[in-house]
Computed example of a mutant assay.
Amino acid sequence: MLKDILAFVDTGEADEQFLKDALAFARFHDAHLSIAIMSAIPTPDYALAYAPPYIALTDFLKASEEKQERVAKLVARDGVEVRILSDDPAVLLDKAPVQARYADLILFGPAAAYTSQRLRRRLLENVALSSGRPVIVLPDGWQPKVFEHLVLGWNATAEATRALAEARLVAVPGARIEVVTVDADASTKGHGSDPGADIARNLSRHGYAVTVHALASEGRSQAEILTEVARSQRADLLVLGAAAHSRLRELFLGGVTHDLLEGTYVPILFGH
């Protein structure tokens, strides 16, 4: 059961719909919502490139204050906590996962809801990989409902296993789960002799209605395949494990996760 939800925004003005969606999500789950405004202080290089430092800092402070006032006004009736985190961008990347650890679930909006696309992507990556909490990316204007039909991108990794465990916290008992494997080979490790069968058996024992889709990529990306399955099955939630293929975790996510960070028409849950 969700009790604390944290939504991340930046200091731009493109996120009004996401803020409304986050409010609706929290209301639906009868959970407390906190909103963290990530306010990246202009670095000396930025200030030198565009204006004297004192002008850049003045603009930054004004934008941060205006954003905090706007968000507080929008959510005043709901008792939402609004906090602003101002720091060097690199420091914010470390602060965000720490903030996330004190919530049950983290919400991000689609890419279009953020002025700084680079900051959003790196924040999302760091929170997904380092907070230990599930992250859901909401599409614009998504109407909250129970998660009773899920698509699980399954590659038999620890990350996918964790994502599934986190998805079960928000899925209704007996939900339908489409287990999707892509180009999965039978092996003594990982997938076993019949890719997808073992996890389907486990989920079935927990009362879920499970279907396995063992698909070949045939030149398509895994992200494209998973979103196609989610669309064709009219799923409520796409579930993925967030995996890093580099020690520079804030810069690189593995494969399909990286491709879906911008968001899609269905909510996406990233677990790690």
Rank of each mutant, 00 (worst) to 15 (best):
V80R: 03
S221A: 08
V239G: 02
A165P: 00
G241Y: 03
R83L: 14
S204R: 03
I199R: 05
A96T: 06
D194A: 15
A158D: 04
M1P: 04
Y54E: 15
S232K: 13
P52G: 02
V137E: 01
S64E: 15
A230S: 08
A90I: 13
I136N: 08
F147G: 00
R121Y: 04
L23T: 02
I5K: 06
I5D: 07
A47V: 08
L129S: 08
S221M: 09
A197I: 05
K20V: 05
L251I: 08
I199Y: 00
L260A: 06
G190E: 09
L253A: 05
L57W: 07
P195E: 01
I84A: 09
M38V: 10
K189C: 09
E81D: 12
R118E: 11
I84D: 07
V137N: 02
R231Y: 01
R83H: 09
T188H: 13
P267W: 02
A100H: 04
G207P: 03
L129K: 08
L150E: 00
P134K: 12
G109V: 09
G207F: 06
V127M: 04
L169A: 13
P134W: 10
E228F: 11
L203S: 10
S130N: 07
V98D: 01
D259H: 05
L238V: 01
E224N: 06
T115S: 14
G207R: 07
L48H: 07
V210H: 07
L19Q: 12
V75G: 00
A26I: 03
H32T: 04
T188P: 09
S232Q: 05
P89R: 07
E178V: 11
L33T: 06
P53I: 10
A209Q: 14
E218D: 10
E228C: 04
L61D: 04
S204G: 12
P89M: 08
L105Q: 06
L253P: 00
A112Q: 11
L169K: 12
I225Q: 04
P267K: 07
A51V: 07
Q68V: 11
L152K: 04
S39C: 03
A165E: 06
T161P: 10
L124D: 00
G255H: 08
R234P: 00
A184T: 12
Q99M: 14
L237D: 03
G196D: 02
K67P: 05
N202F: 13
